[in-house]
Amino acid sequence: MDLWQIVNRLLSRSGAGSKEIARERLRLILVHDRASVSPELLEHLKRDLLQVISRYMEVEERGLEIELASQEDTVALVASIPIRRVKRAVKVAPV
């Protein structure tokens, strides 16, 4: 926001503009829209997740569940991944 906008904001009677609200609502709506249009996307994500996690632990592939859980003002990726066994020594690539 530049100075000009701030001055205008201070002078306007309506207080905080409704645009922030619009932008935030839109952002959330699109997270839902974009996620819900493709069940394939979740499948791909599942596959990739499994690949990464299996480097560290043995997981129960069939029990894996992921979903987008929406609360009022956030959307979270919730994954439930049953573990069979954690590997003893994991080679971690240097960061």
Binding site: Q5, N8, S12, S14, G17, S18, K19, A22, R23, L26
Partner: peptide, 16 residues
């Protein structure tokens, strides 16, 4: 309206 903060601006929309 954009100036008053009551309408999404160009950047908001392009960003989204």
């Amino acid at each position: 309206m954009v100036r008053q903060g009551d309408m999404m601006d160009i950047e908001d929309i392009l960003d989204i």
